[in-house]
Structures are given as C-alpha cells and as structure tokens.
Amino acid sequence: MKFVVVTGLSGAGKSQAMRCFEDLGYFCVDNLPPTLMCKFADACYKSQGKINKIALVIDIRGGDFFHKTFESLSELKKQGYRYDILYLEADDKTLIKRYKETRRKHPLSPNGRVVDGITEEREHLKELRENANYIINTSKLSIWQLRDKISELFGEEGQVEREISVTALSFGFKYGIPVDSDLVFDVRFLPNPYYIEELKGYSGEEKLVKDYVFSFDETNDFVDKLTDMLDFLIPKYKKEGKRQLIISIGCTGGRHRSVAISNKVYEILNHKGYKVNVQHRDIVEDVNRGVSKL
C-alpha cells in the first residue's frame, strides 16, 4: 500500500498537490487528525486492495492534534506501514503574495501580520521538514509544474496524468450554445438537409444524410481546416495543463450537419491517437419537437 503524508507551509500548494494525488488514483484526506492515522490505515488495509494508495494532509491546522504527529507516525511504522513524507515550502515573499491575492488569514496569525505566522509555522514544522523524504519548493513553480513533479515522484510507471480528453459535441443553436464549450464552430453556412424532403426525417448519424453533407467541397474544406487547427491547439492546451477540451459544433437544430461533422472530427482525432469521444446533445431534442423519421 502506498502511503504519502503531505505537509508543509500554509500557502505552499498542498491543496493543488492533493488534486494531483486524486488524479493519480490516491484516496485523499485533508487535515486528518494525526491520532487517527493508524485507524485510517487499518481501515484502508482491510478494504482488500480497493484502497491501496493514500495521501493525507497533516499540517498546522490540526492545532493540538498536530503535536501528536511524530507519535502517530512512529506507531504507523511499528504496525508495518511504510510511508513517505512530502514537504511543500516556498519563500516568505511568495507566501505573503499568495495570502494577499487570496485575502486569507494565516492560521497562526489570524489577526496579525502574515509574515509572523509564516515564521512561527516554519519553526513548528522544522522537525517534519528534516524527516521528509521529498521537499518541493513551489516559489517559482506553476500549478502544472508542481503536478508534473508529483506525478514523477508518486505516479506509476507509464501513467499519463495529464492526458487531455477531447469531446466533439454537436448541438442546435436554437436550443442554445452548450455552456461548457471551449471551442464553438458554426456550420450553418452549409446546405441544410432539413429542406430535402427525403432527408428531413433522418439524422447525421445515417449514411443518407452524411453522404449529402459531405458531397459539398466546402464541408470537406471546413473539416480539413478544423482538424489542422485542432492539431495545433490540442498540444498547446495540453501543455498548459488543460484536462478536458469540449469542441462544440452547431447547426440550426443539432440533428443533421453538426452531427455528421462531429462524427467525422471524432473519427479523425481518434485515428490520430487522441483520447476522444463524441456526443450529440440535441439529436433527440429535435425529434421530440416535431421532426419524425420517415
């Protein structure tokens, strides 16, 4: 069982670290009283492998409980549980800046100067720092650089923590643009199968409509230009740490053109090796509002 105790200075990035551990498949608990560590470890051990990676934040917020940390860690070791201590820190200037930006109070100096709280906290955490297996100074790290370091230290070999998930989402403008869209493309400039009597009742999922939509040069030109753009954009989004990209493609009702083109984009991106799925938000909605299949 992997067991990581995450600790360090307030404002040094423990919350971001825990989000990374969650993405790596760890069962995470923030601000667990140290006296409960052994009981918690026992409960996880008895889960028969369902919980085999644990990350706990133990820090100064524990108040009087915090002073039992080493006693609890010693007991944990006696019971045969191996653990690593990850200590996060940053320089005073960076910590003060972060506190001013978030307007939070320091837990050890709620009514005084932040710098006084930081100084006192460093003293309280001195022994933990000395016993840490890993120390990360986050002063000059972006969120994603911190995530990379944690992934390198605690991720399994070959685990891709920052793989981006892409969704090609068709929709109808008359029902509104999807609120979670990252990129929105309007394909209403293409000829509409709705006005072809023998196609009206079908959807872009079916060959009749798909063949019609892609019988126009402008459709194929659009898809070529769109996929070229996505080839450029997706690695950039991934580099900046984006985890999910929603590409919304809309036509009037979300039943014909947008569906056919979203499916095509899915096929192309899937062939290129991206983690991609396709969804059609309004394909049923348009049927329910009066379009019936012939």
Rank of each mutant, 00 (worst) to 15 (best):
R103Q: 13
A132N: 04
L125N: 04
A90N: 06
E156A: 09
H106C: 06
L125E: 02
V115G: 05
H106N: 07
I118W: 08
E123T: 11
P110R: 02
L88E: 02
G80Y: 03
I143N: 10
L125Y: 02
Y134N: 11
S139V: 09
I143F: 12
E120D: 09
E127V: 12
A90M: 07
L141H: 07
V114G: 00
N111D: 14
R147D: 02
D116V: 05
L153A: 08
K140C: 12
R82Q: 15
E120L: 13
D92P: 04
Y99Q: 03
I96H: 02
E163R: 13
H124K: 15
I135Y: 08
D91H: 10
I136Y: 04
K105Y: 12
I150M: 02
K78F: 08
S109H: 04
R98W: 00
K100M: 12
R162M: 09
N111K: 11
S151L: 04
R147W: 03
L86A: 01
T138C: 05
D91W: 06
E163P: 02
I85Q: 02
V115M: 10
D116M: 01
G112D: 14
H106K: 06
S142Y: 06
K93C: 12
S142K: 10
L86C: 01
R82S: 15
R147L: 02
S139D: 09
V114R: 00
K105M: 10
E156F: 05
D148W: 01
L86I: 03
R82W: 10
G158M: 01
G155P: 06
Y87C: 04
K126R: 14
N133P: 08
L95K: 03
S151P: 01
N137E: 06
Y134E: 10
S109Y: 02
L153E: 06
E127S: 10
T94S: 15
L153I: 11
